[in-house]
Simulated assay, not measured.
Amino acid sequence: MLSLSLGDFKNAAERLAPYIRKTPLLDLEIAKGQTVSCKLENLQVSGSFKVRGALNTVLTLSEEQLKRGLVTASGGNHGMGVAYAGALTNTPTTIYLPENTPASKVAKLKKLTPDVIVSGPVWDDANALALKDRDANGKTYIHPFADETVIQGQGTIALEVLEAAPHLDTLLVAIGGGGLISGVAYAAKLINPNIRIIGIEATGAPTLHDSLKAGELVTLDAINTRAGTLAPRRSETPNFEIISKNVDQIVLVEDDMMEDAAKWLWESAGIAVELSAAAAIAALQHNLIPSDTGNTGVIICGAGTDGIPK
């Protein structure tokens, strides 16, 4: 397993500080007598937490690595983070996206880099093309969740959350490939070994849930969720190992639960999110989280319009 110290996460936070937002922590009443602290990463510079890991990685690259150009595959949010980092460092950037990426995200990405390729049904297919591009053209590949510096960057969220709310007993974190929960869980447990970390996945993409159940990484046969940013068919060994050690439980939510939660966030607080960002709220609203979690924090991981009436 990756061996990281609290100092690694603090160094990442210092590296990122000039370029990203220290997003607010907002207390929301989910139900009568039940308030949760929501970390609003939907307000981050790129629209999601992903810029933390992507930019932390790019800022640690050598001049020679940058000269080769950047390439990655993304469901949209990581691509925005890498494109933002490429623009910041004047580095040519190529983004591969799966066909289930919302058109609005494709359009936003093309404003940052003209080299955006949409191909393949799911992220894993787009990623294969990104790796092929890396091998053929020598570009520097930025993995969206299995890179050590990406994980360090995502973990800076835990530092901010627990600085603002040291009383929290539980953190709820949505899971796609596992980069966010790997970083958050690792850093949070270094700060408070007793904090409970609960992951939330889409029922139609239970990548880590099924891997933990099997005791090894599994590759899903198919993806069946509209939450594209929660939908790789397979995670990677570093994430699996960190999650196995530091995550206490993973629960599954249906797409319609996330959609209802996204609508609730918009109607009750004017928070515009994508489905994945509403996953933790959905789990709370449907009583899928144990009742003894105490003071609870939630990471609202990305902006979107899924909760806004069409």
Rank of each mutant, 00 (worst) to 15 (best):
Leu26Gly: 09
Leu2Pro: 13
Pro144Trp: 03
Glu29Ile: 12
Gly47Met: 02
Ser211Gly: 12
Thr140Gly: 13
Leu288Ile: 12
Phe9Gly: 04
Ala165Gln: 14
Asn287Tyr: 05
Pro98Met: 10
Ser276Met: 04
Ile300Met: 06
Glu236Ser: 13
Ser268Trp: 04
Gly270Asp: 04
Leu70Gln: 01
Thr23Glu: 05
Asn137Arg: 15
Asn56Gln: 06
Asp255Lys: 00
Ala283Pro: 11
Leu172Ala: 01
Thr23Pro: 00
Asn100Leu: 10
Asn287Ala: 12
Arg233Val: 11
Val247Pro: 10
Lys310Tyr: 05
Ala222Tyr: 14
Thr113Phe: 00
Pro290Thr: 13
Ala85Asp: 00
Leu131Val: 11
Asp8Thr: 07
Ala214Thr: 06
Asn11Ile: 06
Thr225Asp: 14
Thr140Arg: 12
Thr225Cys: 14
Asp147Ala: 13
Asp256Ile: 03
Lys132Cys: 04
Arg68Tyr: 02
Glu216Thr: 15
Lys189Tyr: 00
Ser182Tyr: 07
Val247Gln: 08
Leu288Lys: 15
Val45Lys: 14
Asn246Arg: 11
Leu131Thr: 09
Ala128Arg: 08
Pro24Phe: 10
Lys105Met: 06
Ala164Arg: 13
Asp8Tyr: 05
Val273Gly: 09
Ala103Lys: 13
His167Phe: 12
Thr23Ile: 04
Ala85Cys: 02
Leu2Met: 15
Ser48Lys: 14
Gly183His: 12
Ala165Cys: 13
Lys22Val: 02
Arg196Phe: 08
Glu274Thr: 08
Glu241Pro: 12
Asn100Thr: 05
Val58Gly: 02
Pro238Cys: 01
Asn246Leu: 06
Glu63Ile: 04
Pro290Tyr: 01
Ile175Asn: 11
Val298Lys: 07
Val36Asn: 02
Lys105Leu: 07
Val58Thr: 12
Asp133Gly: 14
Lys32Glu: 00
Trp266Asp: 03
Ala73Ile: 01
Ala282His: 07
Gly75Trp: 01
Ala222Phe: 14
Met258Leu: 09
Ile289Asp: 04
Ile20Asp: 00
Gly7Cys: 06
Ala12Lys: 02
Leu129Met: 15
Ile223Gln: 15
Asp292Ala: 10
Leu43Phe: 04
Glu259Gln: 05
Val298Phe: 06
Thr225Gly: 14
Ser291Leu: 13
Gly178Asp: 01
Leu171Ala: 13
Ala278Lys: 07
Ser291Ile: 13
Asn192Cys: 07
Val161Ser: 09
Thr229Met: 12
Asp260Glu: 07
His286Cys: 11
Phe145Lys: 11
Pro92Glu: 00
Gly178His: 05
Phe49Ala: 09
Asp124Thr: 10
Leu171Val: 08
Tyr84His: 08
Pro98Val: 11
Tyr96Gln: 07
Leu172Thr: 06
Ser291Asp: 14
Val251Met: 10
Leu220Asp: 15
Pro92Asn: 04
Thr91Ile: 03
Ile242Cys: 07
Ala158Leu: 09
Ala283Phe: 03
Ala283Lys: 07
Lys39His: 02
Pro193Ile: 08
Gln154Asp: 02
Ala303Asn: 08
Glu163Lys: 15
Lys110Pro: 05
Lys22Phe: 00
Leu25Cys: 15
Gly76Asp: 10
Thr101Arg: 03
His209Tyr: 14
Thr203Cys: 08
His209Met: 13
Trp266His: 14
Ile243Leu: 04
Lys110Leu: 06
Asp260Gly: 07
Gly294Asp: 02
Arg15Met: 06
Lys10His: 04
Ser211Gln: 07
Ala130Tyr: 05
